[in-house]
Amino acid sequence: MTPLSRRAFVAAATASLLAGCTGDRENRTTTARGSSAPSSSSSASGKPARPLGRSVPVGLRIPAIDVDTPVMRLGLAPDGTVQVPPVAADDRAGWYRHSPTPGQVGPSVILGHVTVDPYGDGVFRHLERLRRGDRIEVRLENGTTAEFAVGSLRNVAKANFPVDDVYGDVDRPELRLITCGGPRTADGYLNNVIAFAALSSSRS
């Protein structure tokens, strides 16, 4: 092979390698920690806050993990599972509309992606970093902001998703933030990360 041909071949091979690597570029920030947090679903704050009236959430802010996102409404998928926000570059959180609105008595459920390939990180990419006592602010349609305090965080296998703990009745205003986590395989994540929080205060 002549030097010129060799150069052309090397260039083509390099281009192929670059093309192959592009598909994985957006996966760089995904973490797959398997550690589990305490499993209690109780609130961090023992001080009960007065429940709020029904008003759908329109925004979510979690200063501890730099989340500030609009909130859309989610329902049920045809297969009976909960819908998740669409995969888009402007990833956002979604409130499960068959759950109470944040601040009402009961478990209000908000979901978000941890990754949205091929766009990269999801809005709940750092949900697993939440710690007990971290503040969660939910802006409601009526102008009120409901403030919750994280009580616990759970990292559970999807096969053992704690349906009762997440969707079961509670006697005070609580919030669940759900995303994926744990080991990552070709079929997706094996776990769910769930943050349990309780209403601590509200402001208009």
Binding site: T30, H113, R184, A186, G188
Partner: peptide, 10 residues
Amino acid sequence: GAPDTGVTAG
């Protein structure tokens, strides 16, 4: 079931 909130390339 569990929500599928982690979309991966694979």
